[in-house]
Simulated scan of single mutants.
Amino acid sequence: MTPGASGRAQRGHPLLRMLALRVLGALALLFVISVLVFSLVHLAPGDIVRNILGPKDVSPEAVAVIREQYRLDDPVHLQYLHWLGNALSGDLGQSVRHQSAVADVIFARAGNTVLLALGAFVLAAAVSIPLGVLSALRPGSALDRSITVVAILGISAPAFATSLLLLYVFAFALGWFPLYGIGGGGADTLWHLVLPSAALALGLGAILTKITRTAVIRELEQEYIVSARARGLPARRVRGLALRNAAIPIVTGAGLVLTYLVGGAIFVETVFALPGIGTLLEDAVIFKDVPVVQAVTLLVAAVIVGVAIVVDLLYAALDPRLRR
């Protein structure tokens, strides 16, 4: 092995160790979350048998069949182990409400939520990061104060409030966008998702604007920037150095605020009547569709943990100190 290859291998070891530790930690966290969710769902009031059979009088034989089908007579820990074993093999169970495989129910809804989340994130990043940079480059100016006020309002406003406001103004009053639903597919679906994505992007963009502004201002106050200015480097090059190093906390913050999409999507999908994961989880909790609640909660947790791992790897890729 050449010296260069040996050096590259040695530099790769810390990243591989970090990735292995993050994955192991993620698996442990998902296990704890699955136990907590399973326990809380089973402790919640309501009877799954009554939800399936309805309010009408039913025979004890019908109740016994349902309880046997969902193993409701087993102790809770045995029910959990049975569910966990099936989940590890890819079987997430049968939906109580939809009477079909949980995986099929989630798959039918997941695409809409992914489109909504991607649209909101792209819109928020495209607008908020440039605004944060402009605000940081002119601290104390009228532009800076205006952007800060708008960002604070965006952070303070709950997702359902901004959704209702945008729905009333742009869909009901002006009629520019559809009132509700997901459309008939293709361009029609994308058009239906414009307003919900904007509603979800407001809060996310406000947070990202504040993170970007703080990161850039902090970087501009570093000693190497002061020294670069003292040596007479062009202002454009000095700003380039600061922005390059400020990218580390911006990328980290962008990854972390993605968790905002999880809670926000539930409210936005409810207001706009979008058939996504958020409304699926809401209906499952109300109906006490235990298999769906468990599967969706674990899926959301896995996505959040996965995003955190990707953020860690991006942080290591951008910061040479971590690679050493």
Rank of each mutant, 00 (worst) to 15 (best):
276 G>Y: 02
71 R>D: 03
270 T>I: 01
227 S>N: 09
210 K>C: 10
319 D>W: 07
230 A>S: 02
143 L>P: 11
1 M>R: 14
25 G>C: 07
92 L>T: 03
160 F>G: 10
11 R>V: 06
77 H>T: 13
313 L>W: 07
165 L>A: 02
258 L>Q: 11
69 Q>K: 08
265 A>Q: 01
158 P>W: 09
169 V>N: 12
125 A>L: 02
167 L>P: 07
114 V>F: 04
49 V>I: 11
166 L>S: 09
67 R>D: 00
146 S>G: 15
118 L>S: 10
220 L>R: 03
189 T>R: 01
281 L>V: 05
223 E>Q: 15
65 V>K: 15
184 G>I: 06
124 A>C: 05
207 I>T: 13
285 V>T: 00
106 I>P: 07
72 L>G: 01
153 L>F: 11
135 S>Y: 00
198 A>F: 02
27 L>T: 08
70 Y>M: 05
20 A>N: 02
6 S>M: 14
302 A>F: 02
130 P>C: 12
307 V>R: 01
23 V>M: 09
285 V>E: 02
290 V>Y: 08
130 P>V: 00
143 L>Y: 02
140 G>K: 04
222 Q>K: 10
84 L>W: 10
11 R>P: 14
15 L>Q: 07
298 L>H: 11
44 A>G: 04
148 T>K: 08
266 I>P: 04
186 G>L: 01
126 A>W: 04
205 G>F: 06
116 L>W: 08
276 G>E: 07
10 Q>C: 12
150 V>D: 11
162 T>V: 12
4 G>D: 15
157 A>M: 07
166 L>P: 12
97 R>W: 07
116 L>Q: 03
256 L>N: 01
189 T>E: 09
276 G>H: 04
288 K>H: 04
147 I>G: 01
176 W>K: 06
223 E>F: 14
208 L>T: 08
165 L>E: 00
86 N>F: 05
313 L>I: 15
248 I>H: 03
91 D>Y: 05
182 I>Q: 04
212 T>D: 01
230 A>P: 04
18 M>R: 13
208 L>M: 11
88 L>S: 10
62 A>L: 09
39 S>F: 14
134 L>R: 15
40 L>K: 02
105 V>F: 04
283 D>I: 03
172 F>G: 07
237 R>G: 13
247 A>P: 09
262 V>Y: 01
172 F>I: 11
8 R>P: 15
85 G>M: 12
57 D>Y: 11
267 F>D: 04
200 L>G: 00
76 V>H: 05
269 E>G: 00
119 G>P: 02
249 P>T: 02
177 F>W: 13
71 R>W: 12
256 L>A: 08
156 S>T: 14
228 A>Q: 12
311 V>E: 08
319 D>E: 11
195 L>N: 09
53 L>E: 07
66 I>A: 11
70 Y>E: 05
150 V>N: 14
142 A>I: 12
188 D>M: 05
157 A>W: 11
186 G>N: 00
97 R>A: 15
257 V>K: 14
214 T>F: 14
59 S>K: 13
15 L>V: 09
22 R>E: 11
248 I>M: 06
211 I>H: 00
315 Y>K: 04
58 V>H: 10
13 H>L: 15
